[in-house]
Computed example of a mutant assay.
Amino acid sequence: MSAQHSLRFGFAVPGAQRGPDGLWHLRWTGTAVMGILNVTPDSFSDGGRHARLDAALASARAMRDAGALMLDVGGESTRPGSEPVPAHEELDRVLPLIRALRGEGVVISVDTMKPEVAQAALEAGAHLINDVTGLRDPQMVAVCAQARAPVCLMHMQGEPRTMQLAPHYDDVVTEVHTYLRDGAARVMAAGVPDVLLDPGIGFGKTLEHNLALLRAVDDLSAGPLPVLIAASRKRLIDFIAGVTDAAERDPGTLALHLHAARYGAAMVRAHAAAEHVQALRVQTALLNF
Rank of each mutant, 00 (worst) to 15 (best):
43 S>I: 12
137 D>Q: 03
221 S>E: 08
114 K>L: 06
23 L>F: 14
205 K>T: 01
169 Y>E: 03
30 G>P: 02
267 M>V: 03
134 G>P: 12
165 L>K: 11
230 A>I: 01
221 S>P: 12
170 D>M: 01
10 G>S: 06
78 T>S: 14
67 G>V: 07
118 A>S: 12
179 Y>K: 11
129 I>G: 13
146 Q>I: 02
62 A>F: 02
85 V>H: 03
71 L>Y: 06
9 F>L: 15
280 L>G: 08
208 E>T: 04
105 G>R: 00
105 G>A: 13
117 V>W: 09
73 V>Y: 14
220 L>C: 08
124 A>N: 06
128 L>W: 04
13 V>Q: 10
46 D>W: 03
9 F>P: 08
33 V>E: 03
249 R>N: 11
43 S>T: 07
251 P>I: 06
218 D>Q: 14
5 H>M: 11
251 P>T: 05
2 S>L: 15
284 T>Q: 15
67 G>P: 10
36 I>F: 09
139 Q>A: 15
252 G>N: 07
200 G>V: 06
246 A>I: 05
21 D>R: 11
89 E>V: 14
4 Q>F: 11
156 M>R: 02
252 G>T: 13
98 I>R: 03
97 L>Q: 06
76 E>A: 10
107 V>Q: 14
163 M>I: 09
247 A>Y: 01
129 I>K: 07
256 L>Q: 00
48 G>E: 02
124 A>Q: 03
206 T>Y: 12
164 Q>G: 10
42 D>P: 02
287 L>Q: 14
179 Y>T: 10
13 V>R: 03
52 R>H: 11
200 G>H: 10
219 D>S: 14
277 V>T: 07
119 Q>A: 15
96 P>I: 12
239 F>N: 11
9 F>S: 12
50 H>M: 00
269 R>N: 11
240 I>S: 01
41 P>E: 02
251 P>V: 09
224 P>E: 04
215 R>A: 15
186 R>I: 05
